[in-house]
């Protein structure tokens, strides 16, 4: 073998590696993924390559999906719960273009689910991987913008300032004010941002059968919630964490209640509601029996006693 010119050493210009990432990038992502699983909730730094998708548009999740995907994979991509969202469609198109994987809208058929801002309503199974796109992996950002100091606080399990923020909210407003990305304690050790999923979805991470990988492309951190791992939203014992109150909302297409809804302002000043999980809605509309859901038709969560009845401080 002789490499007498630089050109002979270079790869042909149009030749992309399988799943776009070169072998080094893929291996590095895989090594970091194993570390993340072994240290639940710990933010593992990684190199985070630039992809042909705008940075901040799911490139972290996309890198993890590309490190996992194979031609036999079945991929579901959602944004805000919808398979048909333009951003979800674009990411799905890129994954299949680079890997030849099949796609699906059925949460239960997918081997890899990449999502921005939602976890599907149907209970995911063992050996499924949920990849959540993360804009800001640092739950301490609001109380400590210096990332080195925040890293030290995680090392010391020093979460006092997080509790103080919650306490201040209770004093001022008699309730917690954190909307999505509700900070949660993983395996009793690390506080994570569960990514900007609504509070409705946060309990779904607790003692789940599936693997959840969370990845931030811009911020170059990835972390994991392994299967069957404790995940508890931060809450004081006498003021429980609450999911969004949508008890009276009914999907205008399916009549379904007790699932996460999109609220749609109507011209007459009222509001309409529709299921946020488009794959789930598709099954109901088609008359296909959906799988068991995390919240049943009465709104009860499938881990008995995990969600406590709401209480507000006087």
């Amino acid at each position: 073998m002789s490499h007498s010119t630089l050109a002979a050493l270079a790869t042909p210009r149009a030749d992309y590696s399988y799943a776009f990432l070169d072998a080094f990038a893929r291996r590095e992502l895989r090594r970091r993924t194993l570390k993340a699983i072994a240290i639940p909730g710990y933010q593992v730094p990684y190199a985070s390559r630039e992809l042909p998708i705008a940075r901040g548009w799911g490139t972290g999740g996309l890198q993890v999906s590309l490190a996992l995907v194979g031609p036999q994979s079945v991929v579901k991509v959602i944004d805000q719960g919808a398979d048909d969202s333009v951003n979800a469609a674009n990411l799905r198109r890129f994954i299949t273009r680079m890997s030849g994987a099949a796609t699906t809208t059925d949460a239960l058929q997918a081997t890899i689910l990449q999502s921005r801002h939602r976890i599907p309503e149907e209970i995911l199974r063992e050996y499924q991987t949920l990849v959540l796109q993360v804009p800001d992996p640092e739950p301490l950002r609001a109380v400590q913008s210096d990332s080195s100091r925040a890293h030290q606080m995680h090392a010391d399990a020093d979460y006092g300032q997080m509790w103080l923020v919650l306490y201040e909210q209770l004093v001022r407003y008699r309730q917690y004010l954190q909307g999505a990305s509700y900070p949660s304690l993983v395996n009793g050790r690390y506080v994570i941002s569960p990514s900007p999923i609504p509070r409705w979805d946060t309990p779904k991470l607790h003692q789940a059968a599936h693997l959840t990988l969370l990845a931030a492309g811009r911020e170059k951190r990835l972390y994991a919630v392994p299967p069957y791992t404790d995940v508890y939203p931060l809450e004081f014992t006498d003021v429980p964490f609450q999911v969004e109150d949508q008890r009276d909302w009914r999907c205008r297409h399916t009549g379904v209640q007790h699932k996460f809804m999109n609220e749609l302002p109507l011209a007459d000043g009222s509001a309409g509601y529709e299921l946020s999980d488009s794959g789930y809605q598709q099954k109901i509309t088609a008359g296909t029996a959906p799988g068991a859901t995390y919240y049943d038709d009465q709104g009860n969560f499938y881990h008995d006693g995990y969600l406590k009845p709401p209480v507000r401080p006087e």
Binding site: D79, Q80, N87, H117, S181, P196, I197, P198, F260
Partner: peptide, 14 residues
């Protein structure tokens, strides 16, 4: 520019 209506809904609830 991407839709943020899930996170927005979560804040509206509060």
């Amino acid at each position: 520019k991407l839709p943020h209506y899930v996170t927005f809904a979560s804040s509206l609830d509060n």
